[in-house]
Design a protein around this nucleic acid. Sequence first.
DNA 1: GCTTGACTTCGAGCGCGCTCGAAGTCCTAG
DNA 2: CTAGGACTTCGAGCGCGCTCGAAGTCAAGC
Lengths: 121, 121
Amino acid sequence: MIATLSIAEAARDRRLSPHTLRYYERAGLLDAVPRDRGGRRRYTEADLDRVLFLQRMRRTGMPIRLLREYVDLVRQGQDTTARRLEMLEDHRADVLLRLEELQDALTAIDHKISLYRRETA
Amino acid sequence: MIATLSIAEAARDRRLSPHTLRYYERAGLLDAVPRDRGGRRRYTEADLDRVLFLQRMRRTGMPIRLLREYVDLVRQGQDTTARRLEMLEDHRADVLLRLEELQDALTAIDHKISLYRRETA
DNA sequence: GCTTGACTTCGAGCGCGCTCGAAGTCCTAG
DNA sequence: CTAGGACTTCGAGCGCGCTCGAAGTCAAGC
């Protein structure tokens, strides 16, 4: 038998709150999480993988709305892969742009820091 | 005489809205912008430089609250440079962290994209 | 049987960063 | 003198992504 996790365990595992896990489910980002006899959620490895994916996308700025769209496509099955690929490529371009922005800002910050260091010394 | 810009010009120049420029001023992020006889703002180069700085910091996720704190330190003068340096270093660490996150996500996205490409082909 | 505590659903609330719109002022051109 | 348009202030509103709390349920341990 495979191990499943309670919401508290899953939350600890993925370093987010049970509130957020329920919110993601409500928001349509997780397929109906299986329940035990008492109606409590039992997270499977697949659920946790999905959460990991969501976290990565969220951290890189993909909005919930688009994530829901993507997840809906996954639910609709095989013939949506082209559209999903397109979404991933779009997001990839976004990430590259933000990488550039961060690099640019890093340069500026470093410049300013070195000015301050000189001044303070 | 040095050129100054109206709010519309400044906004165009910095690619943000007049609303946002006023908001930044209200939020204490810009020193009182000089006005013409009619009470309308005239942005100096120094103002635009400040805006550029703010934009860079905002784009890299520094909250308005911290920016106000920083700007307040600038207003307080020379003996706050140590604290300002500290803030910049803190933010720098943040940026590095987010760079790592982005890189990590990029790898994951690329992996997923290549899976989709294989599947679609 | 009773308590405890981790869970459930639901709707409301919050902090952030704008974004907008109403109402008024002022300069310029005709 | 008038109309137009770009500005002003002010407060309210909005979209996002959680975050929280109330009220109820359920299973386990004593």
